[in-house]
Design a protein around this nucleic acid. Structure first.
Lengths: 156, 156
DNA sequence: TATTGTTATACTCTATAACTATA
DNA sequence: TATAGTTATAGAGTATAACAATA
């Protein structure tokens, strides 16, 4: 009862259920659009991470939060698709830098734009001030928790 | 830059980036806690879906959004762990019903409680009215998009 | 010695296709 | 015929452990 400053009259789920189910929705959209571009979600995510900025394998471990051996395999498969390339590091003989090819960059940008469109769409039932409040509140959680820059132009 | 009714002075990400990164955070928490309980995220999710209510395989296909053959394999593995059981449907000779064992129900409840705690924690930097607004706004998206009840007590 | 990255191995997850059995 | 579910198969994703090469 008596909710404070209710922006909508809809029922409200507990935060955990709301978050888990929003995550499920986001993953569904992400997976569907990745598939439409011939990619797995993980391959699309890799492309989003490296499309604006080359990254070393160790950086990818930190950003993607998977083991280095998993990164190796993932980069192998995306490289086999002709979307990224391994470059030797100019400063460290052991390290490699993962860069997109022209095709990879185009595909990454197209996927990024599609996901952005779809995720904007699912908030169109909200009014502008509510959308702004939602963006600010979710952002504050994401920034407070130092979530790696797995999606978005630069900044990370 | 006059934002409307700003609840916080933090920078705000675009909705899509905020959503994708929140989803990444939720998945990270979910995977870590599942592992602490000896489960994969998918196994934990299955347990959350059936822990309060038996479900048929076809229902699980709709809720989990994976192919029926994938559900078969997933249920196989969780059944092998002794956490769920297949029961013949009383009304349809072709159908089976997936039920938790006592251990599965306990484990599912413990996992559910842990995830709930952790996801509450990540919003503790917000004040109560902001948390309420966040819950309502995310809920409105989830309910408008008819996201299946993959987490939460009953309802769905 | 520590760090960067790869390889070998095993298991989970997933979809496609073909199948059985019941409705 | 259609629906409920399983099985066979193959590929992707993941971690662990062991390894090579460079710092």
């Amino acid at each position: 009862m008596g909710s404070v400053a209710a922006p909508l009259d809809d029922a409200s789920l507990p935060i955990p259920a709301a978050f888990v189910r929003l995550s499920f929705l986001v993953q569904s959209v992400y997976a569907r659009l990745a598939a439409e571009h011939g990619l797995t979600p993980q391959q699309a995510q890799l492309l989003c991470v490296v499309k604006d900025q080359p990254r070393g394998m160790a950086e990818l471990v930190d950003i993607l939060r998977i083991d280095k051996s998993s990164v190796s395999g993932l980069v192998d498969r995306v490289e086999r698709l002709g979307l990224v390339r391994r470059r030797p590091s100019p400063v460290d003989g052991r390290a490699v830098t993962v860069t997109t090819t022209a095709r990879g960059r185009r595909l990454g940008n197209a996927f990024f734009a599609d996901v952005s469109d779809q995720l904007e769409q699912i908030t169109t039932h909200l009014r502008a001030p509510e959308r702004d409040a939602l963006a600010r509140l979710v952002s504050s959680v994401v920034l407070a928790e130092a979530v790696p820059p797995v999606f978005g132009a630069a900044a990370g």
